[in-house]
C-alpha cells in the first residue's frame, strides 16, 4: 500500500468508520469539513510519526500540511526525504 492509501485508510477507519474509499476524496477538506477535530489531528500525527518514523514539530502543525489527504501525503513525503 502506498502512503496515500495508508493515510486514506487511517482517516476512513478512524474518523468516518468505514473502509469505503469512495467516502472521502483526496482533496476533501478534513479540518474545515469537520472530519478531523483537535484531538483527531493529534491521533493522526501520532500515527504518522510512528508509521513513517518522522517527528512533526509544533510549528509544522498548520492547515497547509493537514487539511486534505493530498496535503498530508505531500508533507509526509517531504519529511521522509529530509
Amino acid at each position: 500500500m502506498d502512503s496515500r492509501q495508508t493515510i486514506r485508510s487511517f482517516i476512513l477507519k478512524n474518523f468516518l468508520f468505514t473502509d469505503d474509499a469512495s467516502a472521502l476524496a483526496d482533496d476533501a477538506a478534513l479540518i474545515r469539513g469537520g472530519i478531523v477535530d483537535s484531538t483527531g489531528v493529534l491521533e493522526l500525527i501520532e500515527f504518522l510519526e510512528e508509521r513513517y518514523a518522522i517527528r512533526v514539530a509544533p510549528e509544522e502543525m498548520i492547515p497547509a500540511h493537514f487539511d486534505s489527504i493530498d496535503a498530508i501525503d505531500a508533507f509526509v513525503a517531504r519529511k521522509r526525504q529530509a
Binding site: V36, D37, S38, V41, P58, E59, M61, I62, P63, F66
Partner: peptide
Amino acid sequence: SNLVFPHL
C-alpha cells in the same frame, strides 16, 4: 476558529 492547530 478552533484548537486543531495549537501552535497557531
